[in-house]
Amino acid sequence: MRLTVDGTTHQVDAEPEMPLLWVLRDELGYTGPKYGCGAGLCGACTVHVGEAAVRSCQLPLAAVDAPVTTIHGVVDAHGRVAAAVLDAWIAHQVAQCGYCQPGQIMQAVDLLAQDPAPGDEAIRAAMWGNLCRCATYPRVLAAIRTAAASLAGDGPARG
């Protein structure tokens, strides 16, 4: 089947039940989405399918019905929001081991694309499924608040 990832269309020859994560990583070489749990419990594999953040380890290839965006293409796809999120993540020095961060960022971009001014409860609700074993959560919260503030004002925007 044909699969569009970060603006490039690929012909994929894989089992329809293969999770999108493994199509992206091992068939196509998009290694930004990570394998963490294989069960939709950690969020490290989060990508966007169409407009929605999804756990790619839980989505069979056959069910992919829209273009896929990974961390590598998120700035192209979501210019202003993604740029604000990435800038805030770096400004707050969020990452420790960093393995969950592509998923955290994809989830945060999805949140701010839908709700540009989320309160803390909305942030916690949206980010609940993204596990960080280093417990960078206080900085995740701070970075999302900063990104939201920069989107609301004339903050830095690259897109």
Partner: peptide, 21 residues
């Protein structure tokens, strides 16, 4: 300080073991 690995980790460019080919 700004960590030397921060930008690579936030943009998905940092290659962990399973990202190598």
């Amino acid at each position: 300080m700004a960590r030397t690995d921060m930008a690579a980790k936030c943009t998905g460019r940092l290659a962990y073991g399973a990202d190598l080919r």
